[in-house]
Computed example of a mutant assay.
Amino acid sequence: MVDDLRLGIGLGYWQARPADDTAAVQTAESLGYDSVWVGEAYGSDALTPLTWYAARTSRIGLGTSICQIDARTPANAAMAAMTLDALSGGRLRLGLGVSGPQIVEGWYGRPFPKPLARTREYVEILRAAWAREAPLRHDGEFYPLPHPGGAGLGKPLRLITEPLRPDIPVYLGAQGPKNVELALEVADGWLPAFVHIESFDAMYGDLVARARPGFDIVATVNTFVDDDLRAAFRRAKQPLAWYVGGMGAKGANFHLDAVTRAGFGDVAHEVQDLFLAGRRDEAVDAIPDELVDGTSLIGPPGRIRERLQLWRDSPVGTVVLMELRDETAMKALAAEVGL
Score class of each variant (00 low, 15 high):
142 F>E: 03
47 L>F: 02
181 E>L: 11
110 R>W: 06
69 I>A: 04
210 R>M: 11
103 I>V: 14
237 K>G: 09
148 P>H: 03
176 G>V: 07
147 H>S: 15
48 T>P: 12
100 G>N: 15
329 A>H: 12
157 L>V: 08
260 T>W: 10
20 D>Q: 00
155 K>H: 15
161 T>Q: 14
295 T>N: 06
61 G>W: 00
276 L>P: 05
224 F>H: 02
106 G>F: 02
155 K>R: 15
183 A>E: 06
252 A>D: 11
237 K>C: 03
118 R>H: 02
177 P>Y: 08
281 D>C: 05
174 A>I: 10
308 L>G: 03
8 G>Y: 00
7 L>H: 01
43 G>R: 08
284 V>I: 04
258 A>T: 11
299 G>R: 04
182 L>P: 04
302 G>M: 00
160 I>A: 15
137 R>E: 13
243 Y>L: 08
333 L>A: 03
151 A>K: 13
297 L>H: 00
288 P>N: 08
132 R>K: 03
2 V>M: 03
109 G>D: 13
209 A>R: 09
68 Q>L: 15
32 G>M: 02
54 A>R: 00
86 A>N: 09
1 M>E: 12
286 A>M: 01
154 G>H: 04
46 A>Q: 01
311 W>C: 05
262 A>W: 08
293 D>S: 08
299 G>Y: 07
45 D>T: 08
134 A>G: 10
202 A>L: 07
151 A>G: 13
275 F>P: 10
321 L>G: 06
325 R>Y: 15
245 G>S: 02
315 P>C: 06
216 D>W: 07
187 A>P: 02
178 K>N: 14
8 G>S: 08
291 L>N: 01
258 A>E: 04
29 E>Q: 13
184 L>F: 11
257 D>N: 05
82 M>D: 15
339 L>G: 10
144 P>N: 02
196 H>L: 02
276 L>F: 08
86 A>E: 10
328 T>N: 15
76 N>E: 14
263 G>Y: 00
125 I>T: 08
337 V>D: 04
75 A>W: 13
53 Y>P: 04
93 R>D: 14
312 R>M: 04
316 V>H: 05
313 D>R: 03
120 R>V: 07
145 L>Q: 14
73 T>N: 06
175 Q>M: 14
282 E>V: 07
48 T>K: 06
59 R>N: 08
31 L>A: 02
221 V>E: 00
262 A>G: 10
103 I>E: 09
140 G>L: 08
11 L>K: 00
288 P>D: 05
289 D>W: 07
35 S>K: 05
26 Q>P: 03
31 L>I: 01
85 D>L: 05
225 V>N: 07
16 A>P: 07
258 A>N: 15
52 W>S: 09
40 E>V: 01
82 M>L: 15
280 R>N: 13
115 P>W: 07
86 A>S: 15
201 D>K: 00
123 V>C: 05
1 M>D: 12
166 P>H: 05
148 P>M: 01
327 E>D: 14
192 P>L: 07
1 M>S: 14
194 F>N: 12
330 M>D: 12
127 R>H: 03
113 P>A: 09
